[in-house]
Design a protein around this nucleic acid. Structure first.
Length: 490
RNA sequence: GGCGGCGUACCCAAGUGGUAAGGGAGAGGUCUGCAAAACCUUUAUUCAUCGGUUCAAUUCCGAUCGCCGCCUCCA
């Protein structure tokens, strides 16, 4: 197995990945709080960790991937009240939307996608243990974590409690022993959702559900924990404090955080209002284009969003799809089927791909290999048509795209050989009939292209262009090649 | 105030102690009735600025300038 290096937020350096259990990898990624539509920022995180998931599997690891939903918190309650609906109605709606948005982005299903509200017992028992061990205390139905009791507090985010104090912007609550103590359990107010607990009716604080759910599905100590950069503090810092206080041992070996999506260089977020919802972007751009865009930059640096850049991705991907479409169309002919069956990976290219990805998931570099390969394939196709090597290239290309989750849309193509044209009998009545039709069957389209071929041969370009215009109006593009005409349906 | 990141061609963006991947755009060409696609050539003596270390730095160190993030909910 190739050595994988991962940038670990905990040590702030790249480290070789050494799983706790040989051949296995446990990964927990903080999902979303479901009170609104998902935006590009969420997409970057979800797509990136989807790539990590796929790549670990490609390396041969048996991966247990957990990505949670936080489906109870203040924002949810507030939003539900505003809309005058039950909070569960709200969270269910946005969980459905989450899947809609992300299925479109070709996200693989994680091993588990737990919801906080399905794990109240686990949460309550985690809080109980923290109280027993003296890391937490109850005050009027709230339970708080005693931050100063946990020695390593700040080790992930590189800060100390005293530094925090210097620029403190947090409200002082008299009930807490220390202003930095955070809530594990919140007493519910009237008309708020609640669960019964040893401390009365209430709901969990923000961080505890991740500690509870990760240990439930992955154990107290697991390999990788991920999320957006903004979760480092306080969310992940607090998770460490909770989980390590409970278990008494190490919580997570590798902390992985992705950078933000920005707009005009500024962070995209719901609070500032400068966010783009996925479903809105899908109106203009196909999800696979967005996916390419999202992985075209290294995951840890900010990614600035603009439609110009999406346009660039769109054009770039069209080149890949044109190439694959053309070659696969040629492969449909019977004599090439045997070649296709024996296709194998081009090791030289593929090993390079693995090497780049092993260097802290360098998707930008990996993607460049796809474009290099496309150029190679086009060159080869131009000269030799189909041969074994070309088919291997195609196989390799598809494999790399698969690991990255990039979809190649190569269907809807067809070509008409110009050799067929010479034998085709020109029939004006037939042509007029076809031109008058509103909807054309595949055979009709092929016939039209043949008729156009005849027209071109006779140098009747008016007629030829008329046919092309007709097809173009039906979203069918024609490309005249040397010995054939490509038919591309959009 | 504390902690962290970034600054590479017209734009986006990799990368390395030995002299700059890839994509988009531009220019020229091949092909072509035209169009489109594809291919070829071309576009950074230079990697924010200034110092230092080194035989050699864009890559290491220091300073300066600029941009951004976290320290409050946030992917």
């Amino acid at each position: 197995m190739k050595k994988l290096f991962i940038h670990n937020t905990l040590s702030n350096q790249k480290q070789e990945f050494q799983p706790i259990n040989a051949g296995k990898a446990g990964m927990y990624v903080c999902g979303v709080t479901v009170y609104d539509r998902c935006h590009l920022g969420h997409a970057r995180a979800v797509v990136f960790f989807d790539v990590v998931y796929r790549f670990l599997q490609e390396l041969g690891y048996e991966v247990t991937y957990v990505r949670n939903f936080t489906d109870i918190d203040d924002k949810i309650i507030k939003r539900a009240n505003e809309q005058n609906i039950h909070w569960r109605q709200l969270t269910e709606k946005y969980i459905d939307k989450f899947y809609q948005d992300f299925n479109a982005l070709n996200i693989k299903k994680p091993s588990f996608a737990p919801k906080a509200t399905d794990h109240m017992e686990d949460i309550i028992s985690a809080v109980s243990v923290l109280i027993q061990k003296g890391f937490a205390y109850e005050k009027n139905g709230d339970v708080y974590y005693r931050v100063r009791k946990f020695e390593g507090y700040g080790k992930l985010s590189g800060r100390s409690i005293d530094d925090l104090q210097a620029g403190a912007r947090i409200e002082i609550k008299d009930v807490k022993d220390d202003p930095f103590d955070f809530a594990l359990w919140k007493k519910s107010k009237e008309d708020e959702p609640f669960w019964n607990s040893p401390w009365g009716k209430g709901r969990p604080g923000w961080h505890i559900e991740c500690s509870a759910m990760s240990s439930k599905y992955l154990g107290n100590h697991f390999d990788i924990h991920g999320g957006g950069h903004d979760l480092i503090f306080p969310h992940h810092e607090n998770e460490i404090a909770q989980s390590e206080a409970i278990s008494g041992g190490k919580f997570v070996n590798y902390w992985v955080h992705n950078g933000f999506v920005t707009v005009n260089k500024e962070k995209m977020s719901k609070s500032t209002g400068n966010f783009f919802a996925l479903e809105d972007i899908y109106k203009e751009y196909e999800p696979r284009i967005l996916r390419l865009f999202l992985i075209s930059r290294h995951y840890r640096v900010p990614l600035d969003y603009s439609t110009d850049l999406l346009d660039e991705s769109k054009k770039a991907w069209a080149r890949v799809e044109n190439c694959v479409r053309r070659i696969e169309d040629a492969l449909h002919s019977a004599k090439n089927i045997a070649v296709k069956k024996n296709s194998e990976v081009d090791e030289e290219i593929y090993q390079l791909f693995i090497e780049y990805m092993c260097d802290d998931f360098n998707t930008a570099r990996a993607v460049s290999l796809i474009f290099d390969l496309v150029t190679k394939m086009n060159q080869k196709f131009m000269i030799n048509k189909i041969d074994k090597k070309l088919v291997d290239y195609l196989f390799t290309l598809r494999k790399m795209c698969d690991v990255l989750g990039l979809e190649i849309q190569s269907s809807g193509t067809n070509s008409v050989a110009l050799t067929d044209v010479s034998s085709y009998k020109y029939n004006e009545t037939e042509l007029d009939g076809l031109l008058a039709k509103d909807k054309l069957a595949i055979e009709d389209i092929r016939k039209l292209v043949l008729l156009r071929g005849v027209a071109r041969k006779n140098k009747d370009f008016n007629q030829a262009d008329k046919i092309r215009d007709k097809l173009s109006a039906l979203n069918i593009t024609l490309r005249d090649m040397k010995d054939q005409t490509e038919i591309i349906e959009l």
